[in-house]
Design a protein around this nucleic acid. Sequence first.
DNA 1: GGAGTGTAGCTAACACTGTTAGCCGAGGCA
DNA 2: TGCCTCGGCTAACAGTGTTAGCTACACTCC
Lengths: 166, 166
Amino acid sequence: MAEDRVTQAVAVARELLEADGPDAVSMRAIADRMGMRAPSLYKHVPDKATLEVHLIAAALAELGQALRTDRGDLTSLAGAYRAWATAHPHLYTLATAQPLPRDRLPEGLEDEAAAPLLAACGGDQDRARAAWAGAHGLVSLELADRFPPDADLDAAWGAFVAAFSG
Amino acid sequence: MAEDRVTQAVAVARELLEADGPDAVSMRAIADRMGMRAPSLYKHVPDKATLEVHLIAAALAELGQALRTDRGDLTSLAGAYRAWATAHPHLYTLATAQPLPRDRLPEGLEDEAAAPLLAACGGDQDRARAAWAGAHGLVSLELADRFPPDADLDAAWGAFVAAFSG
DNA sequence: GGAGTGTAGCTAACACTGTTAGCCGAGGCA
DNA sequence: TGCCTCGGCTAACAGTGTTAGCTACACTCC
């Protein structure tokens, strides 16, 4: 019951975030959509940071799931990573831009999300981390419009995959 | 003269940012350190976003300069990139986390910053962008504490350089 | 030298943010 | 019936960026 209201708050926060970006996610906006005033929200949720932790957890879980659904080679993993991130740009950014609140996240979530890529790298942690960084870098630079407007991002992803396949 | 005050404001903003992080950079804090009240700051600077554009421009220029000072091979470029970013974590994050305000940045700044890496990749744009993404990904994940606490980041950087050297 | 004008400071205020304190009515329970 | 907790409310606080409007000083021009 009480649980219900916090999951509802998380869902509303996610809608606002995905639709209109991080600035649209205010406690007042969330409360409005739940039919109450902002201070009442604090009867269910301790603070905004907690909502964000839930969003981060959801993002990591979904991204991990997206990486688990395909063939498992680096090419398809890269495609799945990019596809999920660009489908949820604000959520992806929220989930990766700040330090991980590890102590407030479900146990093992981080490892689960990382597992597919680690497997594709034959268990080589260092290589997996470098590959993850490459994918994250490409995605976050793309989401932040950092590449020149005429840049061929497909080709850049191709070069990335090629580098890690050789 | 008027120019003086805006460069001073930028310098103060940078000090605050580098010392105490983005939350410490408020118009009131900047104005305080300049011996005036916040509204007076608007006699010299149109808004906070303008100050941030100046900070981004400075960051790109310095990072580009840092990449130009060494041997020019991928290994040393990677080292220089990581060194500059970790020496200026908040500034690096500010300069890379948001969409580039290209129309408000000095002409050619972006290309200049990218030139050394492009050269190291033998002029292959796609490869250079993938390599840039790799470096940026490693840096931003490191700055955001995303790697497990026991991760060997030197080894991850090594794997990254190895992938792009092969 | 007096008048006018632009510069650069000020205070007060607005709209917004997250958040806390304190009140109050409805429902469950002894 | 009395109590007590739950979940809503309003008012408020401290902070943010920012605007409006006032004022005092300095410089220029006649």
